[in-house]
């Protein structure tokens, strides 16, 4: 399968004069063409930082990005501003958390979309652009009237749809949705998520969905990456992980969601808080909150355990799995990749 994005030892550190905050640590992740990956985690787990760092939109003055992220034959971490401009929106686009403010309040929506279109096609004819905008608005179930309107004349759901339409304007290879439906009510969120899934049947786009809401991932993604305190806990197919979560943190996350069907259960949250990210920890970062924590967990960081071709977990509970077995499964993987 074609790799669309490959993160290797990806680190993001916020820094100021007196301290450093290790917001994202040692992320290794591959996204294949056609995948839809949901990145989940609680607030402050580094989800948005990861997205903003990928897009290189963090202020360079106070952030360090290390490692590599290979996308479209270039390393986004090393890419120059000029190279980035080339691929921005054409190959890699984004829908932000607060779409209500994603457009300038004093310019007409049509004018703003036109300007964005012209970034990569400066000489486009006006009617060509208008056709494109109309087609996109139709895709997200909006009327043409929107073109002549100002953002304050639209509802939150409509603005979200506009933001999604704009993100698709140049048929990007990779679309990042950063909490794109979080600010909406559940009904609108449901509608838009259904539209996104339907849209993708006709588009050739790979999607990263950043959210704290596992149900969003369950309905719209095929893969999931669980992030805690800037580190990956578990990665794999949604169908496997939701049914049988391996990592205690994933278990905790799933146990804190009520289910509509089935027996009545007591909702259990995860006790404790996120650790202070300005310090480095020797052991597993989740150990202080983990009810299965062992002596080993405090001492050393768990390394990656390959459970199957696509499912990986970072937890000492599974490191007893025979090393040879792991190696074997890795060899399998290599073959699969070939």
């Amino acid at each position: 399968m074609d790799k669309v994005l490959e993160l290797k030892d990806f680190n993001v550190t916020y820094k100021n004069k007196s301290k450093k905050v290790y917001a994202v640590k040692d992320i290794n992740l591959v996204i294949n063409k056609g995948d839809s990956l949901g990145i989940v985690g609680e607030s402050g787990s580094g989800k948005s930082t990861l997205a903003m760092a990928l897009l290189r939109l963090l202020p360079e003055k106070n952030t360090d990005i290390n490692g590599s992220s290979n996308f479209a034959n270039m390393d986004l971490v090393q890419a120059s501003e000029k190279e980035l401009k080339e691929i921005r929106w054409k190959e890699l686009s984004v829908v932000f958390q607060k779409s209500m403010n994603a457009l300038s309040p004093v310019h007409r929506i049509g004018e703003q979309i036109e300007d964005i279109y012209r970034v990569h096609k400066p000489n486009a004819r006006k009617d060509e652009i208008l056709d494109r905008i109309k087609a996109l608005l139709k895709l997200v179930n909006l009327s043409d009237r929107v073109i002549k309107m100002y953002p304050h004349e639209l509802s939150g759901g409509m603005l979200q749809r506009v933001a999604i339409a704009i993100s698709l304007i140049h048929d990007p290879k990779l679309l990042i949705m950063d909490e794109a439906t979080t600010a909406l009510d559940v009904v609108t969120q449901g509608q838009i998520l259904a539209e996104i899934v339907k849209m993708e049947q006709t588009l050739d786009v790979t999607r990263i969905m950043i959210t704290h809401d596992i149900s969003v991932v369950a309905t719209t993604c095929n893969k999931i990456a669980v992030l805690y305190a800037g580190e990956l806990m578990e990665v794999g197919y949604v169908k496997d992980i939701l049914k049988d979560p391996k990592h205690p943190y994933t278990k905790g996350l799933l146990a804190s969601i009520p289910s509509l069907s089935g027996e009545k259960e007591t909702l259990t949250g995860i006790p404790g808080h996120l650790p202070d990210l300005s310090q480095k920890y020797e052991g597993c970062i989740f150990a202080p909150r983990c009810k299965f924590a062992m002596e080993q967990c405090e001492k050393s960081k768990p390394s990656e355990v390959q459970l199957s071709a696509e499912n990986r977990v970072w937890c000492h509970l599974y490191s007893h799995l025979d090393r040879d077995e792991q190696l074997e499964s890795r060899e399998d993987l290599v073959e699969v990749n070939r």
């Binding site: 939109l57 401009k85 921005r88 929106w89 686009s93 984004v94 607060k98 994603a102 300038s104 970034v119």
Partner: peptide, 23 residues
Amino acid sequence: DFIVTLKATGMSERKIFNKYVLR
């Protein structure tokens, strides 16, 4: 936020400033 969005689209800083920030 809309400035971040415009930056993400690859629009030039000058255009963002002269058209969207100033207005």
